[in-house]
Amino acid sequence: MAKGRVTSEDWTMAALAALARGGVAAVAVDVLAKELAVTRGSFYWHFKNREALLVAALEAWERLATGQIIEDVDAEPDPLVRARKLFALALGDEEIAGLEPAIVAQVDHPTVAAVLDRVTRTRLDYLTRVFADLGLPDADARRRALAAYAAYLGWIELRRAVPRAAPETLTDGEGAREALDHLVELLVAGLPHHPTG
């Protein structure tokens, strides 16, 4: 990357990679400037301070890992196909490996906590709607959404923490496709719009 040609998006993506590596403490301007091969002055061209970078990075994560996925999934008219697509996208390839578990682990940081709370609410609301669209009453759809989201968080934590013990959680791991299909089947089992047998 040419010196001086770094965008605010380059900084935010570098900050997200740093978050995945070492949490909020790893989002250090000098370290990121070195990684991006620019001076510290480049940072101040785009951001007022480190906190502004952290906010921008977390908002980028929110936009890409929640807003964009919901937009992509909502384009599908069939409720069952929409549910399957959602789980496949959510549990598919990660742009930055280990980012989500790293963010969840930083919940004690006020900036992280605020964005994580908003993302979790948005995701649970969307999951509830997905299950309601499959014919569940609202209360049951909410409970199924909670179970699905807990399964999602567990899946990505297994992928991050113990990939050798749970290779099925890796997108290219042995048995990954079958394991993901099985999880989706469990999540949609017994729904009114889910074909039996």
Rank of each mutant, 00 (worst) to 15 (best):
T12H: 01
E35F: 12
P163F: 01
F131C: 00
A113R: 10
G41A: 13
G22K: 03
L158Q: 14
K85E: 07
I156C: 02
V188N: 08
D117Y: 09
D140C: 06
F131D: 00
A18L: 04
V81R: 15
A18P: 06
D78Y: 09
F47V: 00
H182W: 15
G22R: 07
L16S: 04
L116E: 14
L58R: 01
W155V: 02
E59V: 01
G197C: 09
W61Q: 08
E168I: 05
D140G: 11
W11P: 00
L183D: 03
A139P: 02
A75P: 06
G98T: 04
I156K: 03
P163T: 03
L32E: 02
T7L: 12
V24R: 02
D72L: 04
L146G: 11
L19T: 02
I70T: 05
A97G: 11
L158A: 15
P167H: 03
A147W: 13
E9L: 15
D72K: 00
E9D: 15
R144H: 03
R177W: 05
A97T: 12
T128N: 01
L86R: 12
A189Q: 15
L99D: 08
R164Q: 14
D138G: 13
L187C: 10
V55Y: 09
T111G: 08
A161G: 10
R63S: 08
A179R: 06
A33I: 01
L183R: 10
Q106T: 04
R63C: 08
V6Q: 13
D133P: 05
V107A: 15
R160N: 14
P110C: 01
V31T: 14
H46M: 07
A2M: 12
H46T: 04
K48T: 14
R63K: 13
M1R: 12
A161K: 08
G98P: 07
V184P: 01
D93C: 08
W61A: 08
E71Q: 11
E95H: 14
R177I: 11
K48V: 06
L124F: 07
P77Y: 05
F87Q: 03
I103L: 10
A15G: 11
R5P: 03
A20N: 05
K48D: 11
L136D: 07
D125W: 09
S42H: 10
A65D: 11
A113W: 06
T122M: 11
D78G: 13
L146M: 13
D78C: 12
A150T: 13
R121L: 06
E35A: 08
K34S: 14
R129Y: 03
